[in-house]
């Protein structure tokens, strides 16, 4: 029983990442009808926003201290981050400690602007071209973005820690009456799940309760009619692209402490997110979220030793197997609307 709860929890954080990326992908597909292969790269850039903020905050003045020497006899160097000298050592250290949550503020404008540039500069020209061309050009863009990041940050993963208070683990089992140490769950993963829930809720609330969201939903249902009503639907869709990019970026920022950002993390997530979108149903936002969590949890269960003893290697392929079955027997996915990309 404790194993099952543990795997369920383990599935939640990965599921949250899948759900967030798939949500962005679906927003783009549902509004603009474009299959965006560069979405994983946006996730990765989000993670590198966290790295950048951490680097900026830890920029330091280096002072040589002649009174102390290291073992070679050189004067030892003392580096003081600028923020510590500006705001005092305690506030400064706290700022550095909280660099990942701070990066959220920094990442939102960057990702939105990046989304605008991508849509207006490149993807706009591909609406009338075949789906294959859209896939290929965004695939090329993904490679380019990934390589640019690699050129700036190198090929190695960069550890980016969570704030000190969230670093430990939480004995979840005690809370619901299990033995101590039976179900241990890192704090940051709980934060990630809560964060994902908030973002997903915010996106849905935005679409459901604002006039802007209403127009966007109308545009998703029937773009031409909305256009004929004198609404500039293209501009709103561009803004939605920016929002989708921001969602992917935020998913990346918060994922940085879970998995040290490296330049190809986006590609690794991309394939799975596509599978998630297909399982959930192309163009269905609730479907994307549901399928994200479902597949994340399924993957966690498949990696239990008991399951692996029966089906060796099932943890590696479970998501794909599910996707293949879904595409074959129900091409519109779990919650896809009738008639949307059924062929």
């Amino acid at each position: 029983m404790d194993q099952i709860i543990l795997q369920f929890l383990n599935g939640l954080d990965k599921g949250s990442a899948y759900a967030l990326i798939a949500l962005g992908l679906t927003l783009i597909f549902g509004t603009l009808g474009v299959v965006n292969f560069a979405h994983g790269a946006l996730f990765m850039i989000g993670a590198f926003c966290a790295v950048t903020v951490q680097r900026i905050l830890t920029l330091s003045t280096v002072v040589e201290d002649p009174t102390k020497t290291d073992f070679l006899g050189n004067p030892s160097k003392i580096s003081t981050p600028y923020v510590e000298s500006w705001f005092g050592p305690e506030t400064g250290a706290a700022l550095i400690d909280w660099s990942v949550p701070l990066a959220i503020v920094f990442a939102i404008p960057i990702m939105v602007v990046l989304g605008f540039i991508m849509e207006r500069g490149l993807i706009k020209h591909f609406y009338k071209r075949p789906h294959a061309d859209q896939i290929l050009v965004t695939f090329g863009l993904a490679i380019v973005l990934q390589e640019v990041i690699k050129a700036f940050y190198g090929a190695n993963p960069i550890p980016t820690g969570a704030p000190e208070v969230f670093r430990g683990s939480f004995d979840f089992g005690v809370l619901i009456g299990f033995d101590p140490n039976a179900i241990i769950y890192p704090y940051w993963r709980m934060v990630y799940f809560a964060f994902a829930a908030v973002i997903i809720g915010a996106v849905f609330a935005f679409l459901q309760f604002t006039t802007f969201g209403m127009v966007v939903r109308a545009g998703m249902a029937d773009r031409e009619t909305v256009g004929l009503l004198g609404i500039n639907i293209d501009r709103r869709f561009t803004i939605m692209f920016g929002i989708a990019a921001a969602v992917a970026g935020l998913a990346g920022v918060m994922y940085a402490p879970i998995n040290s950002p490296n330049y190809h993390m986006g590609m690794d997530f991309l394939v799975l997110s596509f599978v998630v979108v297909v399982v959930g149903g192309m163009g269905s936002l609730p479907g994307a979220v549901l399928a994200g969590f479902l597949l994340g949890i399924l993957e966690a269960f498949a990696s239990m030793n008991e399951v692996k003893a029966i089906f060796p290697g099932i943890d590696q392929i479970i998501i794909y197997v599910v996707a293949i079955i879904i595409i074959l027997i129900r091409p519109r996915g779990l919650m896809g609307r009738k008639g949307v990309m059924e062929e």
């Binding site: 299959v35 789906h131 294959a132 896939i135 394939v271 596509f274 599978v275 297909v278 192309m282 060796p312 290697g313 590696q316 392929i317 794909y320 197997v321 996707a323 293949i324 595409i327 074959l328 091409p331 990309m341 062929e343």
Partner: peptide, 24 residues
């Protein structure tokens, strides 16, 4: 299936083969 579904299906099969070859 055709179109994007075909691309994703082939992608899924290939990744499956890759993962299996790599692990089990």
């Amino acid at each position: 299936r055709s179109g994007i579904y075909f691309s994703i299906l082939t992608l899924a099969f290939a990744q499956m083969s890759y993962n299996l070859a790599y692990s089990v």
